[in-house]
Design a protein around this nucleic acid. Structure first.
Ligand SMILES: [Mn+2]
Ligand SMILES: [Mn+2]
Ligand SMILES: [Zn+2]
Ligand SMILES: [Zn+2]
Lengths: 141, 141
DNA sequence: TTCCTATCTTGTAATGGTTACAAGATTGAA
DNA sequence: TTCAATCTTGTAACCATTACAAGATAGGAA
């Protein structure tokens, strides 16, 4: 059975072409796209896709814990296929959002939990300039 | 000289009553208020304060690095007087945002820097349920 | 397979937080 | 004291997101 059909079934969501396409797209394109990007990319193969549907599906999938919305900037909704927990780096110059795979701060997490907080989500956002933009800056002088 | 006058002067910003009031308010109320809250609280003593001015001043002070805007949720602008770097815990139940004073993940920060990223900001956001809300839940059963 | 209802998709309209703008007030340097 | 640059204010515009209603689809039951 298709991997994405399985994911939706497991969460009790109906199988629709739109949900499958968006899920596949996010899994295969780990670029933290915004709503506009998802919509315009998928419209190529499915011209009738409505932007409202993209909003709805992102909402459903987020509630089902199949993806997460980043709040690394407040100007747009950035979507991330939910794989292992990881953190992010936003380059202020090219605006790309990179994944950081390294494990992140178990010590503080333990500390907070031991103080009685119930922690459901851990978000780590680093902001600055990526290597590629730094290089361009060097080259361009 | 007034502490806040000094801060503004150091950054080359003109001294205005609105800027001083907002700066003082944020320093004395470390509750990560949103624009609406700042505006309505300060309007009590200064009825002519415009919401546009709150937006403008927050913008100026952020650019001057005197405060930071949290992106812990995408529904509102939360302001934080810029003191020592620290991280945050959002309670999904009462919506309060707590400061986490513990030092946070120097290891990963070093790793990223060593890989060539230039890191300007580090944001750590934890989300879940705070002790006070957990207690209420227990008591209310 | 067929039927039927709950759910989903779509286009359009409404919403509301944020930003743009222009006129009048204030600041601070000369 | 003067005056230009900057700031504050109210109003209007913007536009991403959400609400809504009508028609389509999914999937369980018979
Ligand atoms: Mn990611
Ligand atoms: Mn804080
Ligand atoms: Zn870059
Ligand atoms: Zn709470």
């Amino acid at each position: 059975m298709d991997r994405y059909v399985e994911l939706l079934k497991k969460k009790g969501l109906k199988i629709t072409p739109q949900r499958l396409e968006i899920l596949r797209y996010l899994d295969e394109n780990r670029i933290h796209p915004n709503i506009e990007r998802i919509h315009s990319d998928l419209k190529k193969d499915n011209p009738s896709l409505s932007k409202t549907t993209v909003y709805n599906v992102i909402d459903d999938l987020t509630k089902a814990d199949l993806l997460q919305i980043l709040t690394i900037n407040r100007f747009e909704i950035l979507c991330d296929f939910k794989a292992d927990p990881h953190h992010h780096f936003l380059c202020k110059e090219c605006k790309k959002v990179y994944d950081l795979d390294e494990d992140f701060n178990c010590h503080l997490l333990e500390k907070i939990r031991s103080e009685g907080y119930q922690v459901d989500e851990v978000h780590g956002y680093f902001k600055g300039t990526c290597r590629s933009c730094l290089n361009k800056r060097e080259g361009g002088k």
